[in-house]
Structures are given as structure tokens and as C-alpha cells.
């Protein structure tokens, strides 16, 4: 089993700089807890429902990718999520322990021959709904930026 105390691993930790982070085992059932925690943390910002929907969707999509593609659903591996505010922007960083992912190789799901396919829409939606989506060189860490004003 992953050497994490479950209750502690799922609890948000806040650093002195206001950055929060949470580490979860690679299990889909933990995704909702992370997105709910971020939305709750954003409550004082009084964002509209549309923006909150976008943030939830994008957090859940990148977490799912990290768990299923990055860590290959290996419960021994964890996913680290950090989030903070930079001026008027929300920044969310998700890092898995996998070999890395080349987002450039995901086929465009919107071209006619791919419309009927079952996968590829997650990354596409995140790119469209966030203001920035950046990967590290290895491809196991993604940073999302969303302007809040």
C-alpha cells in the first residue's frame, strides 16, 4: 500500500505563502474530494457558477489523466496537487509519478474522423476552458492557470 496516512494525505496543507497542497493515492474515488476542496477554498472569491464548473471540470480531468495515464492506476503511486492564487489568477499544479505524457500527441477530438472516438476530449476541454495549460519537459506535471476576473 501507498505509505501515506489516508486522513492526513487527503487533508489540505497550507504553506506560509498561501499555497495549498494535497496528495492522494491513484484512485478515481479521491478525485471529487480534491475538486470539492478547491471549490470550497474559492468560495470567498464569489465566482460565478460557469467559472466554478470550468475549474471543477478541469481539475477532475487532469487528475483522472494523472491517475489513469500517468500512474497507470497503480495505487502504490500518488498524485500531488498544489494550488494557489497569483494576483487575479488561480494556479493549479498536478504531478504524477509516471513516465510522462506528451499532450502534443493527443489527436484532435473535434475533427470528423475522431468525433465518434471515446477518448481525447479531456485534455482538449482543459485547453479550451483554462487560460493556460503547461507541462514540464517530462510530461508528468501540468500547470493550469485561470484568470478569475
Amino acid at each position: 500500500m501507498l505509505s501515506l496516512d489516508r486522513s492526513e494525505s487527503l487533508m489540505n496543507r497550507q504553506s506560509d505563502t498561501g499555497k495549498r497542497s494535497v496528495k492522494i493515492p491513484s484512485e478515481i474515488r479521491h478525485i471529487r474530494g480534491v475538486s470539492s476542496g478547491i471549490l470550497k477554498w474559492l468560495e470567498p472569491r464569489k465566482l460565478d457558477d460557469s467559472r466554478l464548473f470550468d475549474i471543477r471540470l478541469c481539475v477532475e480531468e487532469v487528475l483522472r489523466n494523472a491517475i489513469t495515464h500517468g500512474n497507470d492506476n497503480d495505487k502504490e503511486l500518488s498524485v500531488q496537487v498544489s494550488y494557489w492564487l497569483e494576483g487575479d489568477s488561480l494556479v493549479i499544479e498536478v504531478e504524477d509519478q509516471g513516465k510522462g505524457f506528451d499532450a502534443g500527441k493527443v489527436p484532435d477530438p473535434t475533427i470528423d474522423k475522431n468525433l465518434m472516438k471515446g477518448s481525447g476530449r479531456g485534455v482538449y476541454l482543459v485547453r479550451k476552458l483554462m487560460d493556460k495549460m503547461e507541462f514540464n519537459d517530462r510530461g508528468n506535471r501540468v500547470r493550469l492557470t485561470k484568470y478569475l476576473k
Binding site: 483522472r64 477518448s119 479531456g122
Partner: peptide
């Protein structure tokens, strides 16, 4: 989410 869209497809 994207899994939901894929389910409807």
C-alpha cells in the same frame, strides 16, 4: 465530464 460525453457517444 469527458467520460460522460464519451458515454453518450
Amino acid at each position: 465530464d469527458s467520460s460522460g460525453l464519451a458515454t453518450l457517444v
